Amino acid sequence: MSEKLNIAFIQANLNWEDAEANRKLFSTEIEKISKEVDLIILPEMFTTGFSMNAKELAEETEGETLAWMQKWARRKSAAITGSVIITESSNFYNRLFFVFPDGSYKLYDKRHTFTLAKEDETYTAGKDRLLVNYKGWKICPLICYDLRFPVFARNTEDYDLLIYVANWPEKRVNAWDALLKARAIENMSYCVGLNRTGKDGDGYVYNGHSAVYDTLGNNLTDLDREEEFTAEIILEKSSQNEIRNKLKFLQDRDRFNLLDE
């Protein structure tokens, strides 16, 4: 169990629909991380960009990208997370992997597929939220459009860290900033939002704005929001628990169960 969690997150300009180039890109950036970190966070669809060309780009679950993540997790003795286009049983998924340092892993399939981009017509939506126990931290990793749906993210199980990996376009980045802050405040949890930069093959522009917010909605990062970077930050559980115990907002939360449609 660790009081502190040292995370690294990589905001990058993705190569459109080129998995090999993106794995090479992130290999270079991960290699540059000189300090010991506990968790490395990569963007949504980090091998391809936010593409609907799933038939041509999808990998099997235990395909080349998962093997690549396992290799780097072992090499850095750190967990790695990010989402990839996956095919399984004739369906396609926007699937997040959470890979532990020993190479074992857990999965989360994006629950809220982005209808505006017709993601729902290509990808099968997931049903279950993932909670990961790692080094004494309870982590809830979600994907992009999930950010707009606070009920699904509601902190009913006392998680310590909420993560959103994304391809969130510049034209709606004000919503990204506001909603990340809101999710941190309402759930009394650290909230990490990792977005990409650059322009994708469909002409959409992304300007980053990756950030880390604390329990009270304070932005803990002071970064050039639109540039590529690898940032490291140390999260402290005791300071978060101190605020939770003092204010006790979570104990007044509504109790409910999520039902499938």
Rank of each mutant, 00 (worst) to 15 (best):
E20Q: 12
R74K: 15
E20K: 13
L247H: 04
E3T: 12
N257L: 04
T28A: 14
M1Y: 12
R244N: 12
D254C: 02
G193K: 02
N195A: 12
T81W: 11
E170W: 00
D222C: 01
Q251S: 11
T215E: 06
S27T: 15
S2I: 01
F97S: 04
F152C: 03
Y134W: 04
E20I: 10
E186G: 01
N219M: 14
D224Q: 07
R154V: 00
Y93Q: 05
W176R: 04
F229I: 07
P141V: 01
Y190K: 00
M188V: 10
W68A: 08
A211K: 14
R253K: 13
I85P: 03
K110L: 06
Q240C: 04
A231Y: 03
S2Y: 07
D200P: 05
D146C: 12
K76C: 14
R225A: 13
N207A: 09
I80A: 06
N241L: 14
K118F: 14
N94Y: 03
Y93P: 00
S238G: 06
R172Y: 14
T124L: 14
A54T: 07
N195S: 11
L194C: 03
E236M: 05
V132K: 01
L180H: 11
S239D: 11
L25P: 01
W168C: 02
L5F: 01
K135T: 06
S89C: 06
G126A: 06
D160G: 05
L247S: 07
R129V: 06
G198K: 09
E236W: 04
E157N: 12
Q11I: 03
L247P: 01
N53D: 14
R23L: 07
T65L: 11
Y105M: 09
I80V: 12
N207P: 00
G63I: 08
S238M: 10
M69S: 06
N6S: 11
S83M: 12
W168L: 04
S83G: 12
N155M: 07
Y206R: 06
I40C: 00
I80P: 03
E3F: 07
F97L: 07
F114P: 02
N218A: 13
E60N: 10
K32R: 13
E236K: 11
S239P: 05
T197S: 08
K199L: 10
K32V: 03
A21D: 12
A79M: 09
T215P: 00
G49S: 11
N245W: 01
T47D: 15
Y123A: 04
E59N: 04
A153L: 03
G208W: 06
D158N: 15
P43K: 07
P141D: 03
L179W: 04
L259W: 14
K246F: 14
F50I: 03
K35D: 15
